[in-house]
Nucleic acid binder design. Structure first.
Lengths: 338, 338
DNA sequence: GTGCCCTATGTGAGCGCTAACACTACCCGA
DNA sequence: TCGGGTAGTGTTAGCGCTCACATAGGGCAC
């Protein structure tokens, strides 16, 4: 790189000190005279010296890189999380290496993790929203700093997760409070924990209100599947409130309802989950639930850094943190018509 | 990592060869007896050995990592590109390290590039859609393998870009072909090349048809800004066709038109750009232009690998590749009412 | 048989850095 | 005066790998 930029010894020579002193300056070691420190800094600036991360990683055994394993970073949720993670990591001086996988089965996950391990990453964040991921994670060496996001709450692996249940319960309750007798739910793929949590919260809110949950409709996060479910719901006159597991499903539902001439929110109320930036511009503006991706990123990274600094790895850890999402009320909810 | 996994010498000892032979097997060097190769492979498997990327990077001067600099990986375009890049790179045995920046001014870009350089990345992809990025890139050392995506066509830096002009021209022509006298345009932020290209294509198509382009409306990619522009356009009876610079702007425009009771497509036709997955479920389904992100990723990576292998860096290069997008016709376009 | 090349393998050095320890002043209290 | 701390700095030894070269054993032409 840069042909072969200056090394620490070059800086040392220019500053008239030993390379070790340069190292000390670079690493903020206390016992360096102020004058020496300045001389070294000047030499660094003059030569345009950049420390060689590879050499450092070699000797310390870990690089200033955090590996992230995710499935589909094109989806809004994972993309936001990844971006937040990257920002947070950068603030701590860490780079982020992405290892996306096509499937979240344990082979793919293991392979991605191994790739990161080969680069001697300092720690790994796995965005592991599905059942099949869990197995791979438990098998991982216990001395690797590891955090899972939106993973299995029942696995003994450090976990940060959005409180899907609370979010779903809140939004369902919001519909009940508006006067609806019951709320229908279009869920995400059944193997995602996000889906499971949202189903659980929805069901809990209904049961708490003494309402038997209506049949569940299964979607796959896409607007297309929301549209298909919406076509069925639109034909059922008794449906007055629909909670979809994400905003894109809601978009599909809205369109189906529109096609069938069912007015939202006067005839039917619809709510989503995620608060994608466009949700405020759906027709009508969508009431939804906003997960705090920054908070998730901060919590994950902090949990990871703790492990890295302690040097204990994930310790089969019981670490767990839950981030509460917030309800964003817009115009897609109204009381049912009498 | 993994406490300190086995090193090459451990493998060598177990296989009864020298570490160098292990290295040869790992790097696919030809002059190794088949039998030896198998023995080494067996030892690698038995020990669960993983080559240490840091050590390799130290001695070769570059790691098997490609650095990507991008601004907002939450937006659909950059996120898709990043994902595609990661997939493509993984297939070539490269990891991808993301360095997102808050602003695309030359300070931020330089800083992000420097961070990547410190890790001795093999090459850098800069998703540099704005004017201010160009300067930083030209100043970069010429021996760093570098590719820019959607950058400045007039800078002497290797570039892969979606053919914004062709896409915009096609979609504008599509509206003219449907019988519209003219086409209004809601653009993206004025400092993005993507915006500039789309404006240019729109204008070119109109001029070719002998039509004086109507005043330009400036948006910022968001549905919110599309909505604001849409509110103005909705009040203008002479408007029958609108081309928005991306699908989210289109969403905002659609909602504004809806609020003003202007029917799409019967009264006004609307087209977007990007083909986000939900575009097919807008009301009505949106006619748009689909850039081929996979093709862009493949082209960029290939261009980068060529530089890496030649060892010549970007050579101030005149390399240039343009990827044609495709028009996706849906229901948001109809002939104007007589 | 001699010389040569070609294949398969080993040896040694060193990439740029940090960790551990060694060393030199110098200041302090006894 | 001397022992013993405590800054501030230098010295040395690798981290795990690849590169360049050295070496050993055939095969083949003459």
């Amino acid at each position: 790189m840069a042909v072969h930029g200056p090394a620490m010894t070059d800086v040392a020579r220019l500053a008239g000190v030993s390379h070790q002193t340069v190292s000390r300056v670079l690493n903020g070691h206390p016992n360096v005279r102020e004058q020496t420190r300045l001389r070294v800094r000047a030499a660094i600036a003059e030569l345009g010296y950049r420390p060689n991360g590879a050499a450092r990683a070699l000797v310390t055994g870990r690089s200033q890189v955090i590996g992230v394993v995710a499935q589909n970073t094109t989806l809004y949720g994972p993309a936001s999380l990844l971006a937040a993670l990257e920002q947070t990591a950068a603030a701590e001086g860490f780079a982020v290496s992405v290892g996306s996988v096509r499937d979240l089965d344990h082979r793919s996950i293991s392979a991605a993790v191994e790739r990161h391990l080969a680069h001697r990453v300092a720690g790994i964040v796995v965005i592991a929203p599905v059942e099949s991921a869990g197995e791979a994670l438990e098998r991982l060496p216990k001395d690797v700093p590891l955090v899972t996001v939106d993973g299995d709450p029942h696995r003994p692996v450090p976990l940060v997760t959005v409180d899907q249940v609370a979010g779903a319960r809140a939004v369902t309750q919001h519909l009940l409070d508006a006067g609806h007798r019951t709320v229908w739910h279009v869920s995400g793929p059944s193997d995602w924990f996000d889906s499971a949590g949202r189903i659980e919260g929805w069901r809990a809110a209904l049961l708490a209100a003494g309402v038997e949950p209506p049949p569940l409709m299964h979607g796959d996060w896409s607007a297309a599947s929301g549209y298909r479910c919406g076509q069925m719901l639109a034909r059922m006159p008794e449906v007055t409130a629909i909670f979809t597991a994400n905003d894109h499903l809601a978009l599909g539902v809205l369109r189906a309802l529109h096609e069938f001439g069912r007015k939202v929110p006067t005839e039917i109320s619809v709510v989503g989950f995620d608060d994608v930036p466009e949700a405020a511009y759906f027709i009508p503006p969508l009431t939804t639930v906003r997960p705090d991706f920054d908070a998730v990123a901060r919590a994950s990274l902090q949990m990871l850094l703790t492990q890295i600094e302690s040097g204990n790895g994930n310790g089969g850890g019981a670490l767990r943190q839950t981030i509460a999402p917030t309800l964003v009320a817009r115009d897609s909810v109204a009381p049912p018509r009498r």
